[in-house]
Simulated scan of single mutants.
Amino acid sequence: MERLVERFSEAARAAGATVDDADLGAAAGYLIASWSEPQRQYHTVDHLTAVLDVIDRFAELAAHPERVRLAAWMHDAVYDPRALGDANERDSAEFAEGLLQTLGVPADTACEVARLVSLTAGHATEEDDPDGELLCDADLAVLAGDDEAYAQYTAKIRREYAHVPDDDFKAGRAQVLKALLELPSIYRLAPLREQWEDRARANLTRELNGDG
């Protein structure tokens, strides 16, 4: 976890944080604890790390990679599987803006990170938003996994929603899958789209059809 704390501190410093290292470490520890809450099965530290790894890999595509990294840290900082609509994303965005300002990050930067977080509710971005595109693409990278990885992902999602009856879960999950498949492109940035689009669509279609 030490390296994970360092990654948060580095991103916060790059975004303008002015508090001392101990306060940054404490904030990172608080976030890691949030990502480790018992109700989480998929939206865990492993997911956070995977998203950060994609952002690092394609950081040159972003205008402000440090903001994208902070948005990754915050995008599921508040997560309740029983929440309705986009409540988790909305609450996470509000939390992000407040926390970053307490760390000394300039208000406009904190507001922009909150905006990025809010995009993960529907993964819809406007034109000329490379930061938002990279965050959303990184969040959805799991959809392009191989058969084993995708099966592990769907199993974790089902465990996270264990409180939902099977029929209701299938109906809700089908809505999510259809919404993703109806996007003009699941991945917005060309290098990621070229690598992952076909595989992700095949995985989503197979799940929607109940195959495998």
Rank of each mutant, 00 (worst) to 15 (best):
D108W: 04
L143S: 00
L52D: 07
V19W: 00
L183T: 05
T109F: 03
A59N: 09
A26V: 08
G210K: 06
D129C: 10
T102D: 07
A96M: 04
G29I: 03
R173E: 03
L103W: 01
V54D: 03
S36Y: 07
D167R: 15
V164Q: 04
S118M: 09
G98L: 12
Q195C: 07
I186C: 00
D91N: 15
D167G: 15
E126K: 06
L119D: 01
P106E: 07
E182G: 07
E194W: 08
E94D: 11
Q152Y: 13
P191T: 06
D198I: 07
E60N: 10
E66R: 12
L61G: 04
D166R: 14
R173Y: 00
P184I: 10
P65S: 07
R3F: 13
G210M: 06
L143Q: 01
Q175A: 15
W196S: 07
A121S: 13
A17F: 01
Y30R: 15
P81D: 04
A17H: 02
E182W: 00
Y161Q: 07
A110L: 02
E148W: 13
L192S: 03
V105E: 00
I55K: 03
T205C: 05
D80V: 08
Y30E: 14
A107Y: 08
D146C: 08
P130L: 02
M74R: 09
E182Y: 00
D20P: 13
T205N: 09
V105K: 00
T125C: 13
V176N: 05
E182Q: 06
Y150K: 02
P81M: 10
L192W: 00
L52C: 10
V105D: 01
V105A: 03
G210T: 08
A63C: 11
I157C: 04
N203R: 04
G132Y: 01
V164M: 10
E133T: 11
A202F: 08
V113Y: 01
R7I: 08
